[in-house]
């Protein structure tokens, strides 16, 4: 007979076990896989197509003048170069949508799925801490989303370098954008994940949770529109401000999710 001594598992062991289980579960759900991969594929394909189209079709004078007015940074450049540079930059902002959409779906399924299948009680009956469990669940949704976004960006980067103009290549390889993808993407993902978990504690329907959680894309879309219309210039200062705001929001939302994710709340109040 083997000596069996149960105890709280080490945090890395718990995180690994929860992540592997959640990923297996997610991969077995075709709808979830589809909903996870569709946004990055659409953004990536659209971005590449737009840059390629701009390389082939010369813009009209009117378009060029409007572009020079909206984006002073490209003023004076060859019109075709300027349009490609502008489109390449615009799609970089759209890449920021991926970490708000993809992990949200995963996080919502992660909690609402467990609620629906009544698997939370046995899970909470183990000696794991709920904070650790929440952290592990957050990570299980965050890691794939960051990997998907980075991969999509890498493909976009490689394609723009291959087919884009000098201005387009300069735009996508600008240090502040690379830093934004490296730093802002994980921060946005965490925000989206914990928001998804927080919403999932209150509702039982995946679609309702997605509709509520979908609001998180509004600021990103707004930022994109503001940049296109020249109202906002995304310089180093703007990125720094966004990073600070996101860190604060991440901490606040994780804290709220942690408050909602209590053993007794989950078992007695969650319905």
């Amino acid at each position: 007979m083997i000596a069996v001594v149960a105890a709280s598992p080490a945090r890395p062991t718990l995180v690994r076990a929860v992540c592997v289980r959640e990923w297996r579960e997610a991969l077995g759900n075709k709808l979830l896989v589809g909903m996870t991969l569709l946004p990055p594929v659409v953004i990536l394909v659209s971005g590449i197509a737009a840059v390629a189209a701009a390389a082939v079709n010369p813009p009209s004078d009117r378009d060029v003048q409007a572009l020079y007015a909206a984006a002073p940074a490209v003023a004076g450049l060859d019109p075709r170069e300027a349009v490609q540079g502008f489109i390449a930059t615009y799609f970089l902002i759209l890449f920021m949508l991926i970490p708000t959409v993809v992990p949200l779906t995963m996080a919502i399924y992660s909690v609402i799925g467990e609620k629906a299948s009544r698997t939370l009680e046995p899970l909470l009956a183990t000696p794991v801490g709920v904070g650790d469990l929440l952290f592990a669940k957050s990570l299980a949704s965050t890691v794939p989303s960051v990997i998907v976004t980075w991969s999509a960006y890498a493909i976009y980067l490689a394609t723009v370098i291959a087919i884009g103009s000098h201005a387009a290549v300069q735009a996508v390889t600008a240090p502040r954008w690379i830093l934004a993808i490296v730093v802002l993407v994980p921060l946005l993902t965490l925000l989206s994940v914990n928001l998804g978990i927080l919403i999932s504690t209150r509702v039982n329907d995946v679609r309702v949770a997605q509709q509520i959680g979908g609001l998180v894309v509004v600021p990103i879309v707004g930022l994109g529109i503001a940049q296109v219309t020249g109202r906002v210039v995304l310089d180093n200062g703007a990125f720094l401000q966004m990073t600070i705001v996101l860190i604060l929001l991440d901490v606040a939302v994780f804290w709220l999710a942690r408050l909602a994710f209590q053993r007794e709340n989950i078992l007695v109040r969650w319905r």
Binding site: V4, V5, A6, A7, S8, P9, A10, T13, L14, A17, R21, R24, E25, G28, N29, S117, R118, T119, L120, E121, P122, L123, T126, P127, V128
Partner: peptide, 22 residues
Amino acid sequence: PGLYERQSAWDNLVFYATLYGL
């Protein structure tokens, strides 16, 4: 029962054994 239905019997039990620190 509250089991992870998409996963195998084996994976279910090994997952819980891990959570019990075995």
